[in-house]
Design a protein around this nucleic acid. Sequence first.
RNA 1: GCCCCCGUGGCGGAAUGGUAGACGCGCUCGACUCAAAAUCGAGUUCCGCAAGGAGUGCCGGUUCGAGUCCGGCCGGGGGUACCA
Length: 837
Amino acid sequence: MAARFNPLEADARWQKLWEDRGTFHASGDGERPRAYVLEMFPYPSGRIHMGHVRNYTMGDVLARYRRMNGFDVLHPMGWDAFGMPAENAAMEKKVHPGEWTRSNIDTMRSQLKRLGFALDWSRELATCDPSYYGHEQALFLDLFEAGLVYRKQSEVNWDPVDMTVLANEQVIDGRGWRSGALVERRKLSQWFLRITAFAEELLDGLGRLDQWPDKVRLMQENWIGRSQGLKFRFELAEPVAGEEGFEVFTTRPDTIFGASFAAISPDHPIALALAEGNQALAAFIDECKQGGTTAAELETAEKKGFDTGARVVHPLDPEWRLPLYVANFVLMDYGTGAIFGCPAHDQRDLDFARKYGLPVTRVVAPSPEEADEPIGDEAYIGPGRLVNSRFLDGLAAEDGIREVIARAEAEGWGEGTTVWRLRDWGVSRQRYWGTPIPIVHCEACGPVAVQRERLPVVLPEDIDFETPGNPLERHPTWSGVDCPDCGGPARRETDTLDTFVDSSWYFIRFASQPADSPFDRAEAERWLPVDQYIGGVEHAILHLLYARFWTRALQRINKLDVEEPFKGLFTQGMVTHVTFQDSEGRWLTPDEAESHSGPVTRGRVEKMSKSKRNTVDPEPIVDQYGADAVRWFMLSDSPPERDLEWSEAGIQGSWRFVQRIWRLAAEQAERGGSSWLGAGDDLALDRKVHRAIAAVGANVEALAFNKAVANLYELTNALEKAPASPTRSRAVEILIRLAAPMVPHLAEEAWTALGREGLIAEAEWPVADPALLVEEEVTIAIQVNGKLRDTLTAPKGAAREVLEEMALASEKVARVLDGKPPRKVIVVPDRLVNLVA
RNA sequence: GCCCCCGUGGCGGAAUGGUAGACGCGCUCGACUCAAAAUCGAGUUCCGCAAGGAGUGCCGGUUCGAGUCCGGCCGGGGGUACCA
């Protein structure tokens, strides 16, 4: 038996065997309990990167562990294959997006296979394949027919030079990335999914996702953003274009007597009507349209307003008039697109009031004496009671809110209501490389669904990327069709679907993939929900919320009885690496930094990215060290939810550990394999082994792989030091089984060398003997005033009095206490004694 | 701007409110070797000869006891609805 484990030879041999035997095919035969383990599928950007390796290694360990524990495991892989990079490649490299994507998939598939992941490749799918997106079109039409899809005007980033829509990512400092032109916001008619109809259940559902990270649930909760408040009507002093008023939403109706202005969004119908006869206002509204559409950009833009000259009537005082402003910070998408401003108790309103010389009236004061304390540069947002508020004076905020809502409802000018921060999901993209939206626009009938038997609506192959914009729109023939309803002339929808639609149901298609429908309901329901989903925390909101919505939407239209798609969620950290720059600030790769002639600055450790040139390609690393050392490194040291720093020293350490396990197994094999005969003659080692079995299992189930790795190091250290014995022989084999999910090639090789039949991938996970997990002695910490002064050993379960007596007998304690008796003694059994002097 | 997370030795990190630094990397010394690699053994938070003291980004609080809980800062990261 070889002294060294040779992964170059062994990896491929075992990978082929697993593939030939179909070891990792999910059977779905119902004989074993099922487990669905899924990692977020990759975008085929070109080559596998370390982030993928980390993600898929974690999922793989869990999948292999579950299999060894007797589960029928579904662990599939596919490709999130539509998206912008393929179109960029088409423009830059003159290659068809489909060709580019499919060639990337081929490269990345073979790279993944070299890592020995226990994947069921028979279920592989790519979202750019009509056999996938055709079913997506059918599901879209199901939602359309159920009234969950509608069309409305919505703003996009418009590049006025390239005459094209830009993604947020393509807007840099307010300018188009290619043309450099100042970006404008422009309205287009687009398709939307009614995710807001599910706002409440998506929020409530979070409470039952107890296997999700708290932070993700919190982020989603804030994103959905339930606000309760008052929706009420402001009457205009003079009607505008026949409108006598408009609706306002506020979460603070208690501060209504502190109102000093009303403000509406630049998109508000009243604003547009007023602009008809007011050139200055029209110019202001135009000005508000500059810049991109992102929330960050809108929020950080200078707060500006324009006094329309119109006045509104205070709802609680017909004599009281408030000026009506158009303000750039009022969003048409939130609430009613109109607010009232209470400067004394809202910082943004205060800044606005100061800027435009509006009155500031305090209506909340921490004490009656401070009722007329003037407001400075800071709005008062602390607690207190209402003042200067007529019939509300003296009430606490919550009571004031209730009182105003009650009065508004009684008098008929408003009502208590709930509004959501969540907006409907705009799915139209003015791009080629996506799922065509299966709708036909007919002049006579309007938008009409494509007939089911005509699906899939397939993307045309003959397209050009010579000019910016959507090639589907300028394709000479593709969009011309007859209306499905009336047979008259019509035009296909040329927008494609947001790629988040593709990733909102792929986990269902993995579970069941018939040719003639999106999925078989019964089979999908047997696998779903996904037991453990693993991916980057960057998807905490959008992807995960959209997938939750899509699943619930299918449930509502009675296509699939699954409430939540992902029972367990784990969000993993990034893979980072040092950066290097030369004297002129140019980024250098680690190799370049080493051979560079001039001075080199070692920069911060950052997320691996092409622009910082600090990426490490996994493939040559696998060539050099083998799959197992790379997998082991991905699991070591850093907790999986945190960032992992790639280092040459780290991979070498992993390589050495792989060889250490191998040496243990090789030495054992030379002694004639593992023996199950004879009594365990090394009780101390037996205890360590069984503690390791329990700890590794618990840590793998908790996805605390770094701790499971530490457990295996400890066990290995103990085994290396232990003298030969039947216990040790058994222990070596147990170590191999415990390590098998992490270093599967080595484990198979060692398993065979030890003379065991069959694959370790199909072997049973060892069972810990509870009797060997019990401790007999414990170390007790002795503290004086919470400060450690001594430690002593006591039998486990020793009585409080015994521990206290032992503590007081300690010389070190006596020295600190200086003869005085303690005032108080705190005993934590099996843990510590704290003497309070 | 807003929402969320993170901050512990030279480095990655461990620690149900109960002995801070498990485990790994690195380093130091030693063994083996003609030598090196590999391997093995010992040591390794800081200050101090020691006794002892200090110590988990900073400031404050709760507690017999705080890395852990609470409040306020500082620094870094993720998301912010058309990157995926």
